[in-house]
Write a protein that binds this DNA or RNA. Structure first.
Lengths: 221, 221
DNA sequence: TTTTCAAAAATTGGATCCAATATATAATAT
DNA sequence: ATATTATATATTGGATCCAATTTTTGAAAA
């Protein structure tokens, strides 16, 4: 045989292709808050019918990334400063517990992986990469085997925050501070110091919150 | 005018009706783990076409209540004991922080509401009601105005645990202990003791975890 | 010119149809 | 009798069509 058989069930559905693309576009800020998602337009762009687009929108709505109004369609969800503030608190709480339980869990450390994300974060020249690498850095320290639900909640929260973080990161120079704080968190992680890592993570997230809220308040006068 | 005009946009879509009903059926354990959700069957039962059913299933999948396999349809998600264990930890973490921030937030207390749920919980004769009342009791102490995202995450976690909790509650007599623990939490809430309320809530959830895990382990030999 | 009303166009929500894949059943081979 | 193959049926995924609602545009009235 000169070809490799592939299970057809592994091919992505039209719904999933559209969902992934729309989710990505929202997260990276390509679709602005309040932007209408026209079913027909999206269907044409993806060369499919409206049904997969509707299903993708239904999925995005459950993630809080879009809001739909009956008979009026879907728009990209705008997140208020109060909600952003709260989501950061929630992140700080969940992520600090995630790293604590990861360290306490006796699982092997991901040190090589974490280190390489840390290095990549410090070296990244394009703001678009920072946010992805930041997510990878943090999540690689959480126990993927033992904490899939923590990680899923964290990713959901990050999905909702990312476009604001990206806009901020493009315009401010908080990367040096973040890199330094990452180094401290990594140090505590490698030293197996669960409480210190949890506290550093909590404080790091809260610092990012303060910075973003300041930025948004100055921008939304 | 002898009739009251109602905004048509307030009518529920077929998708929402199906979604609500399926979500409810899964939560209360009417649909067993692994049960197949046949689109055609459900569409017939609700006297609609398959499209709203598919959209409802897409939404349920994002909530982790069902799992779909390409070309094979959707089944009710079975949650492993390890996942249940983790979800309880996540609940304990998030709910203890939710009650802490609620108490610290200077918002008015919901005491009357909380008390009435507490009383109803203690008086409930039907196990089916316990789980709903338990949820209402706890969530009424969290700050709906300032913590909608906390509450949303908590409800999502509870949705996934509820059918196991309900099965357990029907067969064990942990209600007396729960009622006593609720009373202590309520006491700390009303006293404005954020740290004590947080600790009691955390311990309460962890106790419920231990109890449910024991039950499930004995049941799944 | 501005406001109101009517008609046309755009869009959403759901029904039906068709194609593709999976599953069950029947027929054939061993 | 069992295993394999072929056929029929069931189910999912998406395309198309129709009905309902919203938005836009154009015409008429003030």
């Amino acid at each position: 045989m000169s070809f490799k058989p592939v299970d057809v069930a592994q091919s992505k559905s039209a719904t999933t292709i559209v969902f992934d693309a729309l989710r990505r576009a929202i997260i990276i800020g390509e679709l602005d808050d309040g932007a209408a998602l026209r079913q027909d337009e999206i269907a044409k762009a993806f060369n499919t019918s409206r049904i997969p687009v509707r299903e993708a929108i239904a999925r995005l709505e459950q993630l809080g990334l879009v809001e739909t109004r009956r008979y009026k369609g879907a728009v990209v969800a705008a997140i208020s400063i109060e909600d952003i503030d709260e989501i950061f608190d929630l992140r700080a709480t969940v992520e600090s517990d995630a790293i604590r339980r990861s360290i306490l869990s006796k699982q092997g450390k991901n040190s090589d992986q974490v280190r390489s994300y840390h290095r990549a974060f410090g070296e990244a020249m394009i703001p678009e990469e920072w946010s992805d690498l930041n997510r990878k850095f943090h999540c690689s320290m959480y126990d993927a085997e033992g904490s899939p639900n923590y990680i899923s909640v964290i990713n959901g929260l990050l999905d909702r925050l990312d476009r604001y973080l990206r806009a901020q990161l493009s315009l401010t120079d908080g990367m040096d501070l973040a890199t330094r704080e990452h180094a401290l968190i990594l140090e505590a992680y490698e030293a197996g110091d669960a409480e210190r890592a949890a506290k550093l993570t909590y404080d790091h997230v809260q610092g990012a919150k303060a910075s973003l809220i300041n930025y948004l308040k100055s921008k939304r006068v």
